[in-house]
Design a protein around this nucleic acid. Sequence first.
DNA 1: ACCTAATTTAATCATTTGTTTAAATTAGAT
DNA 2: ATCTAATTTAAACAAATGATTAAATTAGGT
Lengths: 201, 201
Amino acid sequence: MTTAAGTEEKIKAAAREIFLKKGFAATRTRDIAEHADINIALLNYYFRSKEKLFQQIMMETLSTFFGSLLQIFMDRESALQTKFEQCASQYIDLIKQQPDIPMFILSELRAQPEAFVQSIAGNARLKDLVIYEQIVAEMDEHQQKAFDPVHIMINVMSLTLFPFVARPMLQTIGAVNPSEFDDLMEKRKQLIPQWIMEMLK
Amino acid sequence: MTTAAGTEEKIKAAAREIFLKKGFAATRTRDIAEHADINIALLNYYFRSKEKLFQQIMMETLSTFFGSLLQIFMDRESALQTKFEQCASQYIDLIKQQPDIPMFILSELRAQPEAFVQSIAGNARLKDLVIYEQIVAEMDEHQQKAFDPVHIMINVMSLTLFPFVARPMLQTIGAVNPSEFDDLMEKRKQLIPQWIMEMLK
DNA sequence: ACCTAATTTAATCATTTGTTTAAATTAGAT
DNA sequence: ATCTAATTTAAACAAATGATTAAATTAGGT
């Protein structure tokens, strides 16, 4: 009856939850096994080692995180402001569902800078992105390269992601109420594109 | 000759370096002892436990990080834009010297949300800060509360801190060159206050 | 020089943790 | 029903890790 019935996926689901919440070092294989309600040995049976399992989770998470982004950034049809709107909107929705993703990627990427380079970078260079060209064009129109266009890319990510990363800190210092956080982020879907467009003028 | 000659401080210095770089869970007491060039037992002799030592490092780091900020935020004399300029400038300088501080605080605060609440929060509520009043006043002048003033506080921190937190990621995706990162951040001392002031209009 | 308390060291302990082993159980084919 | 390979389990292992102990050494006062 109950054999191999999605055991592998059960382990991955548990691993994903715990790795994303606590990071690689603070995660115990026994925690994962308990959460998945399986014998500890099964983890190694299916995934060889804690590290292999972690890498698989990381790969999939990176793919989820950067996948949709690249599509938006490469779209030749959409206008620049539309891209900012899609970017903010999609990311805020995604991270609302899985709030641990950004911090997980950022902290684990710091711990192992080399391991996942090609998983992310793939082939696309920043300056080959359509959005980058559009930013340069927009800046040239209003001002003559007052600053590096990379600042804009950094700012989009900063304004979108940082609130989630800093949520525990913001709540601790009493900057935001737990209940109103979601409302704030919902509002930012609209605000961030406006702010960014202003920066280009 | 060499006895107690700053042994305690030697341990703390090593602990600070490693805790800040790798976090609590990934840090081994033996690493600290080796780095400090002392016997492992001395760590427990002076600090009782790994956790106690960690808490002490965390307290001091929080103090360093939030200390200067509160002064700027409470200054009744300085103008709003000046505050933004001081804030960006001071933080970028501080974090250039100790780049691991923001990520350390953010990740460890997520791991132990309760432990350091009062260490940070102290007494000051966000809405009692002088800077908050000034933001509200400035917003009232130009627009009638188009959005929550908290967004502005969040944005200052986002634009200032996120690039440091995301540096490994930004470098991995090839968004920034390691050598040009410092220049970018130096330029942001000037840019961030400008961007923020624009948001208020 | 001697004594006492503080500091340092080497060795060891008890637990935790990732992994493996070998046996038991189950699923699916013949 | 029987056989085989895949899956699952209980038990144990080896290494790592935080902590402790008891002896050795050192510093500073008398």
